[in-house]
Simulated assay, not measured.
Amino acid sequence: MTGGFPRPAWRLPIHPLYRICSLHSLRLLLAVAALLTLAALSGCSSLLWGTQQAPIVDATVMPVEPASAPVAASAPEPVESAANEEPGQPKKPRKPIVRPHKVEPPPPVAAPAPPPPPPPPLIVLRTIERSEARTLLDSEVQKPDGKVVGRAVDMTTDAAGKPREMVVNLQGFLGVGDRKVNFPWSAFHFTPSAKTAPITLNAAAVPATTGKSDAVQLPLIDATVERANGAKVGRVIDVLIDGNAQPQAVVLDVSGMVSPDRRTIAANWSALHFVTRDKELHPLIDLSDAQINAAPPYASDKPIRAVSPAPPAAPAVSAAPAASAPPAAAAAPAAASKAVAVSNAQAVR
């Protein structure tokens, strides 16, 4: 021992854990002391300077936008719960969410207009077989014994369209002494299918008187057929006669009417009508240029197709009077429409 307190000859050994705990305690005490010091200083500051107020700032007026219409909250989308999914299973793909769209009603569809009625036919055709009618011009005329005495060259008709006389060119010897003689129409017999002379003259028939007849007559061959307005339709070049000695049709030369080429057509005898003008008969037929153009041509080696103007369309009949009409009256329009339909079919052919 050198001086001071004597040191013991041995020291109690200090465990390292004790040293660590002492160091931590010292640090804790220093931290507590620092906190107390700060608290004391902050209290002194408030006592010295008092409570500090926030600075006053002038308020600025900001424009406020008008509130918009509230937006409707959309329905929450369904979310599949994770609890429904089994562990270890692959996740199922979510189905696409289809939001309903507002479907506008389709615009009103106008009812389709009814189809227009078919145009009325221009002409009506009637087929005449060659075995049922024979041409008059240049047909041989024979006596009952079969001897040919001449040829028919013309016929006359009255205002009602009834044949009155036939003009026969009686032949002489080698063309010498030929003369034209008018015989009453009733003196002849017609056989259209005959291979020889189709016209037979009654042996007892006498020529017609050459004196002027009370009835006005019209020589038909080479007569000009007109429309009611005076326009020319064509020239008569022949007449078709049936086995009952009744005219069935006339052959008209309509060259220059619809084309410059020579063209002939057959017109129904019933389509002709006769008027008296300047004390003479004039044959009329109401065939327009379009109807003449639609008529089939006449040919001596083909069936005869006689044309007539189509009748005017019948006015529409309301349903109420038709329902109250008696059966006989209702059947008449039906029969008329059937006849027109047949005529239309023939015109198309």
Score class of each variant (00 low, 15 high):
Met1Trp: 11
Thr2Tyr: 01
Thr2His: 05
Gly4His: 11
Pro6Lys: 09
Ala9Ile: 14
Ile14Glu: 10
Pro16Arg: 11
Pro16Lys: 06
Pro16Tyr: 07
Leu17Tyr: 06
Ser22His: 10
Ser22Arg: 11
Arg27Thr: 15
Leu30Pro: 06
Ala39Lys: 06
Ala40Asp: 09
Ala40Cys: 14
Trp49Ile: 14
Gln53Gly: 04
Pro55Cys: 08
Val57Thr: 13
Ala59Ile: 12
Ala59Ser: 14
Ala59Thr: 15
Thr60Ser: 04
Glu65Arg: 14
Pro70Arg: 10
Pro76Phe: 04
Glu77Cys: 03
Val79Met: 05
Glu80Gly: 12
Ser81Thr: 13
Ala82Cys: 00
Lys91Ile: 12
Lys95His: 05
Pro105Ala: 13
Pro107Tyr: 10
Pro108Asp: 05
Ala113Gly: 10
Ala113Ile: 10
Pro117Ser: 12
Pro118His: 01
Pro119Val: 09
Pro119Leu: 03
Pro121Thr: 03
Val124Leu: 00
Thr127Met: 02
Thr127Ser: 08
Pro144Gln: 10
Val149Phe: 00
Val149Asn: 00
Gly150Asp: 02
Val153Lys: 05
Ala160Pro: 01
Ala160Arg: 14
Pro163Glu: 06
Glu165Arg: 10
Met166Pro: 01
Val167Ser: 06
Val168Leu: 04
Asn169Ile: 07
Leu174Thr: 12
Asp178Cys: 00
Asn182Arg: 11
Ala194Asn: 12
Lys195Pro: 06
Lys195Arg: 14
Thr200Glu: 07
Ala205Phe: 08
Thr209Val: 02
Asp214His: 08
Val216Met: 05
Pro219Ile: 08
Ile221Thr: 10
Thr224Ile: 14
Glu226Gln: 14
Arg227Ile: 02
Val233Asp: 00
Gly234Phe: 02
Arg235Thr: 15
Asp238Phe: 01
Leu240Trp: 02
Asn244Gln: 10
Asp253Cys: 03
Val254Arg: 03
Val254Gln: 03
Ser255Thr: 15
Met257Ala: 14
Val258Thr: 15
Ser259Cys: 00
Pro260Asp: 15
Asp261Thr: 13
Arg263His: 09
His273Leu: 00
Phe274Cys: 03
Val275Ser: 08
Thr276Ser: 09
Pro283Arg: 07
Asp286Leu: 03
Ala290Leu: 04
Asp301Pro: 02
Ala306Leu: 06
Ser308Glu: 12
Pro311Cys: 06
Ala313Trp: 04
Pro315Tyr: 09
Val317Met: 10
Ser318Phe: 04
Ala320Ser: 09
Pro321Phe: 02
Ala322Gly: 02
Ala331Gly: 10
Ala331His: 11
Ala332Cys: 02
Ala335Ile: 14
Ala339Met: 01
Ser343Gln: 13
Gln346Ile: 06
